[in-house]
Amino acid sequence: MKNYLKTYVASAVALLAVSAAPATAADMAMKAPPMVAQLPSWTGFYIGINGGGAWGTTGTSASDVGPDGFFAFANIPAVVAGATRSFDNSGGLAGGQIGYLFQSGKGIFGIEASFDWANFNGSTSNGPTVYPVTPGSTFAWNLHASSDFLATFTGRVGYDMGSWYPYVTGGAAVAHLKYSANFIDTFYPTNVTNSFSKDAVGWVVGLGAEWRVADHWMLRGEYLYMDFDSFGGNGTIACTPGVGACGANTTTFNYSAKFRENVGRLALSYRF
């Protein structure tokens, strides 16, 4: 009897184990992995505002292209050197941008156009300097450079790091540049300013990082370096009318100015 009871209990336990195994496996198969929240894609058009500052250098040069007679020949190198300078400029900018981003995997690609009001200024003065061969008289140069508009047309490439992405950028830049050279002479009483301006084209490279601050809002910090084409032209130097007596003596100078700028700015954009 005892042996029979033991056999019965063992059989029942075995049967329960076999029947429970499939149910446990089925329960395990039906358990889904936990859901992971997916960040939205960066793809889309955007528009926004930006602002920041700029600092750079203006390199100037000049040459006396004649006719001879206004300056003593030996004085010309000193006068030319006085107008050949490199000086700093700086200022602020504010404006807006519009662009498009496209995300493929972890890569983010974009194109953008930005337009900014700018207020870059720089100047330098040298003199009065005594003429080498006419020591009883002096000359001086006052040089000034400025810009009041900046536009950039760039592409950028970045890497998705979740709520932000770093990028590099490059393209073309256009700026309205101004340069003036004021010459003062006490030998022939002279106070003449020659001024030039141009919508100059240059190239731009830089880097930055974009943050997703909300579903559709992006905040960016970036640094840009720009190098613009030289510009300038010819200008006449002559006596101040009605002062002194130098007759009809005049000379023509050829001027050139080149701007190189660094820009740091923040941009807030709304992505559609």
Rank of each mutant, 00 (worst) to 15 (best):
S90N: 02
S90Y: 08
G92S: 06
L93C: 04
L93H: 11
Q97V: 08
Q97W: 07
Q97Y: 07
Q97A: 11
G99W: 03
Y100K: 04
L101D: 04
F102L: 09
G105F: 08
G105H: 10
K106D: 08
K106C: 07
I108H: 10
I111C: 06
I111Q: 00
S114P: 06
F115T: 05
F115W: 03
D116T: 15
D116Q: 12
W117D: 05
A118P: 07
N119M: 00
F120E: 00
N121F: 12
N121E: 04
N121I: 11
G122Y: 09
S123Q: 10
S125D: 03
N126G: 12
N126E: 06
N126L: 08
N126Y: 13
P128F: 13
T129V: 12
T129M: 01
V130S: 07
Y131F: 13
Y131G: 12
Y131L: 12
P132I: 02
V133A: 07
V133S: 09
V133L: 03
T134L: 11
T134K: 14
P135K: 08
G136S: 10
T138E: 06
F139S: 12
W141G: 14
W141V: 15
L143Q: 13
H144Y: 15
A145R: 09
A145Q: 06
A145F: 07
S147K: 10
D148F: 08
D148E: 11
F149D: 02
A151F: 11
A151C: 10
T152Y: 03
F153V: 15
F153C: 09
T154V: 13
T154E: 00
G155Y: 08
R156L: 06
V157Y: 12
G158P: 14
G158L: 06
G158K: 04
G158Q: 04
G158N: 04
D160G: 09
G162N: 10
G162A: 05
G162K: 12
G162F: 13
G162L: 09
S163C: 09
Y165W: 14
P166A: 05
V168A: 01
G170N: 02
A172N: 00
A172E: 00
A173W: 00
A173G: 00
A175Q: 02
A175S: 11
H176G: 00
H176F: 01
L177W: 06
L177R: 08
K178E: 05
S180R: 08
N182A: 04
N182D: 06
F183Q: 02
D185T: 15
T186D: 01
